[in-house]
Amino acid sequence: MEDNILEIINLSRSYGKFKLSDVNIVLPRGYIMGFVGANGAGKTTTIKLIMNMIRRDSGEINVFGKDNIKYEMQIKDKIGYVSEQPVFYDDLTVDWTAHFAKKFYSNWDDTIFTGLLKRFNIDKTKKINQLSKGMKMKTALALALSHRPELLILDEPTSGLDPIVRDELLEILMEFIQDEKRGVFFSSHITSDIEKIADYVTLIDNGEIVLSEEKEDILNRWKLVRGDHRELKGLKEDLIGLRLSKTYFEALIKDIDAFEKKHDTSSLVVDTANLDDILLHLARREN
């Protein structure tokens, strides 16, 4: 059996009207998984469930092969977690924040922290409220990496950040998994970041997992098709999120090979779909 760093099995949790249902996700060691979905799709809820910050209704979560509630302390000692809005004391300096954080971890290494601050150009004598948004994220990342975690969980780390900071983050993540024992699980609605470096992509929509596979397989199979209105006949049941414009239609298909076997595509345009295209057409399906 393959060694999975994160395993989510039939996870469910309801919140008033919102329901996260039957979530299944598997991340093998050594890889990066991007967790994609629109705002409110259930990304943060899933992550909070992994971190045992909220209770699950049913299902199972295993981190490093161990139940995340039963072995919570042991597991969290090896998780680096960056939340959507990192909780800091605004009046504390970066140095004091680290001083406070390190007490929770058995493997804290000051040289890692100092090295990362230097690399990020962060002055550790600065107070948290003197830092820019990008600096805050980088501080949170430095804190999350300094106890030598094996699994890094990042909730929307790139949202609201400029391309330069986002690129720095991607670089850090790639460095992190040079050690094949580690893994990264990060959520984002900026799909271009995920499309670059993620090995696996999990797409969540309205509390349900739409797909969770190797990124390359997804991008090789899911395609956009365009064509003249009169070509539509007979295709409709295989089209997702059909959009009709005046002169043509555009839709998503989930398996180009099956589609080409079933239909004559010679007068259609088959185009690559990126993760944004997939999200958009899936969202349109519901309306």
Binding site: G30, Y31, I32, L170, E171, M174, E175, I177, Q178, E180, K196, I197, A198, D199, Y200, E214, K215, E216
Partner: peptide
């Protein structure tokens, strides 16, 4: 495989394949 992925800023699975 991992070095090349990092270098090209692409996923490990891609270089592995």
């Amino acid at each position: 495989i991992r070095q090349l992925a990092q270098d090209l800023k692409i996923s490990v699975i891609t270089t592995k394949r």
